[in-house]
Structures are given as structure tokens and as C-alpha cells.
């Protein structure tokens, strides 16, 4: 079922478009980074600016490149996940193929989980490709050591799993378009409050308590952003100066393992709810 789902997805125009967009994105990123690597630092030629420029290390440029490109890459992957995730099961149901698959000697759980798994696998591979590309291109022009590469696949999985499980559940509850819109809204809210959470960590105790409570609630209810931050913090340079600067602001540039585990657990809960709904459906 998993391979069938994957085969079906790979034939869809939206997936081919996403793959093409990924390649175009990486091409443009390469072009931008290579241009930046060879560029002179603009200024009026004063001694102070010259000294400041001399202090910049390749890791600083790499940080800028990674931090500016990562949100775009994340948006592309999230959008793809939402579109293919919200249509995977409904299309099998609407076009009469689901009764056919379910009439074969296999359990509903198997059909549900393996069919649903295809969008996650595809998005994961594409995310690895795009973030791996960002890392490789940046490192080829500005040599640096990533902070925690091992954290990246785990964080990526927890990020995508939350979006995936939410959109699979929504697609079984509401119409496709509504499922997409709700999922986009949830990820946008999660991203917004995830960013606010990071800022609040820089200035502890200065944010209004209500905002802090809302932020905490959003992170608890839809922890997709935690995984994305884990990916980002995993590939940024582990340069000592950057780490010290971030530490000065109280930011550890890391996501606690517990938060990632929580996100994975949460996605399992959503997936189980989706299965509960799927099991009760008449076809």
C-alpha cells in the first residue's frame, strides 16, 4: 500500500511541481551564495568599516545565508505536505478505490497507516534534499561546521509528522479545501508563536503574561514549530562567536529533546484520532 501510494503521488503534477520548485530554489540559492561569496563589502572605505569587515568570518555569512533561506524552504515543504496530505485519503475514497483496497485481506489499520505514510515519506525526502542542499551549497562557499547534524533528521521528522498527522485527520473530518486552509492556518499560527517564544527567551519576564500563556498553549497544542527550529538550529554554524552572542541573549539555539519527543507523541495522538475516524467510516 505504501509503495502504491508513493507511486500515485509521484505521478501527481503538484509533486512534480514541488520537486521542480525545490531544484529552482536550490539553483537560485547557489547563484545568490556564489555571488555573495565573491562580492566586496560595500562602504565608503573608512578604516572602521574595513576593520569591521575584517572581523567577519565565513560562518557569519553562512549563518545569514541559512537563516534567510530556511523559512522559504520550510514554507515550500509545508505547503506540499498540506496539499498532498489533505488529498491522499479523500481521493482514494472519492474515486472508489478505497473499498477495493479494503476488500483485500488486510486490516483497516494497515490500509490507513500505509496509505497515509506516503505523503510523509515524500515530504521528508524533499525536506532532506532542500535543507541538505542549503547546507552543502553554503558550506562550499563559506566553510563552517553545523551545530548538530544529528538533530536535523529527528527534528525534521517531528516537524513534518505534526503537520502530516494534523492534515490527515482534518482530511477525514472536513472537505479537502477546508482541511488545507485549517492546516495552513495552524502552521502559520505555530510558526508565529514559535518565533515569539524564541524572542521571549531572549528577554525573560518582559513579555505580557497573557502572551506567554498563549505562546505556551500554542506550542503545546500544535508543536510543529519546535521541529522546524530543531532543523534550523541543527544546520547553523557552530562558530564560537555566534554561540556566545546567542547565549548573551539567552538563546541556546537548540530545542530540548523532550519537546521533539512531545511533538512526535502528539503526531501519534492525531494519527490515532484519524484512525478512529477512518475505522468508523462506511465505504
Amino acid at each position: 500500500m505504501f509503495l502504491n501510494g508513493l507511486e500515485q503521488l509521484l505521478r501527481r503534477k503538484i509533486v512534480l511541481t514541488a520537486v521542480a520548485a525545490t531544484l529552482v530554489f536550490l539553483g537560485l540559492f547557489w547563484w545568490g551564495v556564489s555571488a555573495a561569496a565573491g562580492a566586496e563589502i560595500p562602504g565608503n572605505g573608512g578604516e572602521e568599516e574595513f576593520q569591521a569587515a575584517k572581523m567577519l568570518k565565513p560562518a557569519d555569512a553562512a549563518l545569514a545565508a541559512v537563516i534567510t533561506s530556511a523559512p522559504l524552504a520550510a514554507t515550500l515543504i509545508t505547503a506540499l505536505m498540506i496539499v498532498i496530505g489533505s488529498t491522499m485519503l479523500p481521493e482514494e475514497i472519492d474515486e472508489g478505490r478505497m473499498p477495493f483496497w479494503l476488500s483485500l485481506p488486510q486490516s483497516r489499520l494497515k490500509v490507513y497507516s500505509l496509505t497515509s505514510l506516503a505523503p510523509l515519506a515524500l515530504s521528508f525526502v524533499l525536506a532532506l534534499l532542500i535543507f541538505g542542499g542549503i547546507l552543502a551549497i553554503t558550506r562550499s562557499y563559506f566553510m563552517f561546521t553545523p551545530r548538530n547534524l544529528l538533530l536535523v533528521p529527528v527534528s525534521m521528522l517531528s516537524w513534518l509528522a505534526v503537520v502530516w498527522s494534523a492534515v490527515i485527520l482534518l482530511s477525514l473530518l472536513v472537505r479537502k479545501v477546508a482541511a488545507m486552509l485549517i492546516a495552513f492556518f495552524l502552521t502559520a499560527v505555530s510558526s508565529l508563536f514559535g518565533g515569539l517564544h524564541e524572542i521571549m527567551r531572549m528577554f525573560p519576564g518582559e513579555a505580557p503574561p497573557l502572551l506567554e500563556s498563549i505562546t505556551r498553549a500554542v506550542i503545546l497544542l500544535f508543536p510543529a514549530d519546535r521541529g522546524y527550529r530543531g532543523v534550523l538550529y541543527g544546520i547553523i554554524p557552530s562558530d564560537a562567536a555566534i554561540t556566545e552572542n546567542l547565549a548573551f541573549f539567552g538563546v541556546t539555539a537548540g530545542v530540548p529533546a523532550l519537546q521533539l519527543a512531545y511533538a512526535l507523541f502528539w503526531s501519534l495522538v492525531l494519527l490515532a484520532l484519524g484512525y478512529w475516524r477512518f475505522r468508523r467510516m462506511d465505504f
Binding site: L3, N4, R11, E95, G96, R97, P99, S103, Q106
Partner: peptide
Amino acid sequence: VRYLPENITFPQWASPLVLFRQMERVR
């Protein structure tokens, strides 16, 4: 056990050989 529903839409791109392969992956 085999079942042919009244209305089934196979993927438009798939040939009978592909559909057979997909089916045998499961049954």
C-alpha cells in the same frame, strides 16, 4: 475473495500491468 465495486476509477496514468503489480503487492 475478490470484489468489483460498481463505480471504481483507476488512476488515469496507470496501465493494466501497473494496476496488476499494485494489486499483487497487497494480495
